[in-house]
Amino acid sequence: MPSETPQAEVGPTGCPHRSGPHSAKGSLEKGSPEDKEAKEPLWIRPDAPSRCTWQLGRPASESPHHHTAPAKSPKILPDILKKIGDTPMVRINKIGKKFGLKCELLAKCEFFNAGGSVKDRISLRMIEDAERDGTLKPGDTIIEPTSGNTGIGLALAAAVRGYRCIIVMPEKMSSEKVDVLRALGAEIVRTPTNARFDSPESHVGVAWRLKNEIPNSHILDQYRNASNPLAHYDTTADEILQQCDGKLDMLVASVGTGGTITGIARKLKEKCPGCRIIGVDPEGSILAEPEELNQTEQTTYEVEGIGYDFIPTVLDRTVVDKWFKSNDEEAFTFARMLIAQEGLLCGGSAGSTVAVAVKAAQELQEGQRCVVILPDSVRNYMTKFLSDRWMLQKGFLKEEDLTEKKPWWWHLRVQELGLSAPLTVLPTITCGHTIEILREKGFDQAPVVDEAGVILGMVTLGNMLSSLLAGKVQPSDQVGKVIYKQFKQIRLTDTLGRLSHILEMDHFALVV
């Protein structure tokens, strides 16, 4: 994948999101292997301009796509893939009243899908469409860049269908997702969380590099694949309309690839034109409109599966009536509230959605109805927002919020430890010299600072030695090549209790 991002070429006709291997024109390309080798690009942008032909009021008969309808489940399912879809609609009884809503608040519980998330729908649909058009064949390999849930859905379907599955996901995604993927037989590649989507090191860039190296491999490409919004247009939206008897006044959905909100909203605009569509985008993402909503100094966020630093091709923002931004604290607070007060075992993005819903639905009156999409299960986040310690460490809970008995030293300040200034190293000294210094002084790690004293990161003896043994660096290389740029900081005025929580999850903390 090139470091400079080429513009994806656009073909003359058809839909841009065809499933299957992508040609340089962004659509299915038939021909000899030699032709494909000559024409197939190194990668295709996940934010390529959409060429979708959908228009409100256009006859369904003019759609270029294969459409399906929700099917009634048999008493005995032939395999677990038949437990994807037909998820329950559940009334939220307490939270709406707590925040003064007059309307009825309903939750579409997508964590009841077989793999635990709304992404099971698009995973199965992308595979079925690729099999139907002859792209996927027995023994082929599926590769997908994902925040985890699409990966789980694909790995689940691949396990049943017999495909090899490789999932490329950023490091910030939970260990629970990784464990589930491994249990399903998927191979996992992790990428830096802070890598831009168009960087060769991003999950998108690495996935395309693997595709170019592995024979008979395919990126189904949830960011561009029409099967993504079509899955929701054909099934999720129809289920909502049936469950609500066609009567709903507002739908609120958090947005990642945009397939969920695009597919549902398009069908609702056709069948229930008075329904307002509300999009939820986390602070630090750029999906919301108008652009002024996205202006923030924050560039990272903890909530998973929603928000991006690019506009995915499948996201149709014209069908969203209003956007709201959400933050991590309210997302996790509301997710825990949904679990504790409503018994809905949902993930953090569901918290984002409901946090926005109780604001947006203030305009609705008694007798009206708001539906929220709860995308995934708490299963993926047992060591994250479900953990009091994690919430404390991230600053989303305060010590006084917890009532468990603490040891005698818990409320003492870090400054009472009488710490001395640490050994520091410059980023320009060599790895070999740094190892000598650390061994001589008896230290395992040291902060790396520039000549102005600005902290650049941390270097550890173990990481340097393993990097040297693996051949990633040489003793003569500058130590700046092996620094940890993500590390926890703590102030002298913070409590030892807070430091204790940090050290339970990290090997060190830097006192500043």
Rank of each mutant, 00 (worst) to 15 (best):
K36G: 02
G31S: 10
R125H: 10
S63T: 08
G31I: 04
E4V: 10
H17V: 14
S254D: 02
S27A: 10
M169C: 07
H67K: 12
R125V: 04
K247H: 15
S32H: 02
R161T: 02
L28W: 02
W208E: 05
K25L: 10
I80R: 02
T235G: 11
G246Y: 07
I122C: 04
T236V: 02
S19G: 15
H218L: 05
S174P: 02
P145R: 02
G57V: 13
S3P: 04
K247V: 04
L56W: 09
P59C: 15
P229S: 13
E62G: 12
G100V: 09
A186L: 02
N212P: 04
L154V: 10
F99A: 14
Q7F: 15
S32L: 10
A186N: 08
N216Q: 09
L230A: 02
D179F: 02
G57D: 11
A24S: 09
A237S: 06
V90A: 07
T235N: 02
P192Y: 07
R18P: 02
G151Q: 02
S23G: 02
L181D: 02
P64I: 14
V180Y: 05
T13Y: 04
S123C: 05
K269C: 11
D140C: 06
G20E: 13
A38W: 04
K39D: 11
H65I: 05
K172A: 02
Q243I: 05
Y233V: 02
S147I: 02
A8P: 02
Y223I: 02
Y233C: 02
A107S: 07
P74M: 14
V206M: 12
L106W: 11
D234R: 05
R196S: 09
P41D: 07
S23L: 02
L106F: 13
G205R: 10
E9K: 12
G205L: 02
G185F: 07
P138F: 10
P21I: 04
L136V: 08
A8Y: 09
N194V: 02
G274M: 15
P273L: 10
T235M: 08
E213T: 14
K271S: 13
I166V: 12
A231R: 07
A207L: 02
S3A: 09
A157V: 08
K102N: 13
I264L: 12
A195P: 07
G139N: 07
R190K: 12
A183D: 02
I240S: 02
